[in-house]
């Protein structure tokens, strides 16, 4: 059973009497441990898709099953709990709180899940170690470079041990070298067994993931899947060929 299962999901906005289908009858499965990218030009509906997958938004039609739970008609309170425990977000603009230091920023999701301050601290430090940011834990976001900020943001996404991480243009605000480092970090996390969905408009960045889903006008227009091509075995065990 896939981790995420979308069936006939549509999102329809009404703007001045005009119907806008941001998503139109999308079916998508994401398996646990998968590294997937969602590609599409701006306005294609990829952000809407990510918002719906990330429980920030609810679809107009269709069903979503995340980790065995139907979430398409969950209450805002339930959605907040799911976002807190099962989903991690990495944003283009890092979105760290400027008034808190790195450690406090990483602790923030656990504040909302009600962990004790000692456990929060321990887990936050462990997450910072994963992204190699331990020695910056007392710094304010403003004192860090873009890459460091993004790594802190990744630590924050990891800290509650989520089922899936959504990264929305995670390299969009970084120079190409730093972007490489961040992508490398995602690849490393993927190897450790994390499920990661990369949302981007850039096919080059999407190229790091085995499976690529292209969105256009609210529909999935193209799927590049090594499994379908029989390449997955080859990717996983290149030595056997």
């Amino acid at each position: 059973m896939p981790l995420v299962e979308l069936r006939g999901v549509s999102k329809i906005y009404h703007l001045g009497g005009e119907e806008i289908r941001a998503l139109d009858d999308v079916n998508l499965d994401i398996d646990a441990g998968e590294f997937i990218s969602i590609i599409g030009p701006s306005g294609s509906g990829k952000s809407t898709l990510m918002h719906i997958l990330g429980c920030l938004d609810t679809p107009t039609r269709g069903t979503i099953c995340l980790d065995g739970t139907l979430i398409h008609n969950a209450t805002p309170r339930q959605l907040a709990a799911i976002r807190n425990r099962k989903i991690g977000f990495v944003f283009q603009f890092f979105n760290l709180l400027p008034k808190l230091n790195v450690l406090q920023n990483v602790e923030l999701p656990m504040v909302y899940s009600g962990l004790s301050s000692r456990e929060r601290r321990e887990r936050a430090l462990r997450a910072l170690r994963m992204v190699d940011m331990e020695n910056r834990s007392k710094h304010r976001p403003m004192q860090l470079s873009g890459g460091q900020q993004q790594r802190a943001a990744i630590a924050r996404a990891l800290v509650n041990d989520p089922k899936i991480i959504f990264a929305d243009e995670p390299t969009g605000n970084l120079d190409s070298h730093t972007g490489e480092v961040i992508l490398e970090l995602f690849r490393k996390l993927s190897h450790e067994g994390r499920t990661i969905a990369l949302v981007t408009h850039d096919p080059e960045i999407a190229a790091v993931t085995p499976r690529r889903i292209e969105i256009r006008d609210g529909r999935i227009s193209k799927v590049i899947d090594p499994k379908l091509a029989g390449l997955d075995r080859q990717l996983e065990t290149p030595a056997s060929v």
Binding site: P76, R77, A80, R83, N84, F89, L97, Y112, R156, N160
Partner: peptide, 16 residues
Amino acid sequence: VREIGIRKAIGATYAD
């Protein structure tokens, strides 16, 4: 507003 958005995205409920 942005801060509140971030807090909500990482799991703050209405009540929080």
